[in-house]
């Protein structure tokens, strides 16, 4: 295993990049879920514009 990784260093690079990517994606999904929960709690629905000048 060690010899394989020593000869194929790009696999280590890919593993590190995929780890960072996985962490970022998990963070985004959790954030998305939490925002959706807050939106359900708060009325009126936040899809509406926040304010409009007449």
């Amino acid at each position: 295993m060690f010899d394989f990784l020593a000869d194929h260093q790009l696999y280590i690079v890919m593993l590190i990049v995929l780890l960072i990517w996985a962490g970022f994606v998990i963070y985004l999904f959790r954030l998305d879920g939490r925002i959706s929960k807050l939106e359900e709690m708060i009325q009126p629905k936040p899809d509406q514009p926040v304010a409009e000048k007449k």
Binding site: L28, L31, D32, I35, L38, E39, I42, P46, V50
Partner: peptide, 16 residues
């Protein structure tokens, strides 16, 4: 576009 959607929604909540 996904990040933009999250940013806009969280900013709206903050404003509210």
């Amino acid at each position: 576009f996904w990040l933009f959607n999250l940013k806009v929604r969280s900013s709206r909540l903050e404003l509210q």
